[in-house]
């Protein structure tokens, strides 16, 4: 279909620790159109990814630095961040 879509993934807090890297550049497969699709595909990448995304109820996502939802669509060049519920203040 179309060319591979390159995106930047960022991980924070315990997601970063479990994945093992703070960020990575990836090409999204054609099957990944939304955040929900990405959450199905990412755990297959490594045991670290599988551990990080084992319980997605406590995983939040931002796309291009704005809070996203499972149905948020992904495009080439997106900055996609995964992190736990925030605990500042």
């Amino acid at each position: 279909m179309s060319a591979a879509r390159s995106v930047k993934l960022l991980y924070f807090a315990w997601l970063r620790e479990r994945v093992g890297v703070a960020e990575e550049d990836l090409a999204l497969p054609a099957t990944v159109a939304t955040v929900a699709d990405l959450l199905v595909w990412l755990p297959q990448r490594s045991p670290g990814h599988a551990a990080a995304f084992a319980t997605t109820a406590t995983v939040r996502c931002a796309v291009n630095q704005d809070f996203a939802t499972p149905d948020t669509a992904l495009s080439a060049g997106d900055e996609i961040a995964f992190f736990p519920p925030v605990t500042g203040g």
Binding site: F83, V86, G88, G89
Partner: peptide, 12 residues
């Protein structure tokens, strides 16, 4: 402070 605690991306 209520919104800062729940809507700004900080982790402790």
């Amino acid at each position: 402070i209520d919104w800062l605690k729940t809507k700004a991306p900080f982790w402790k």
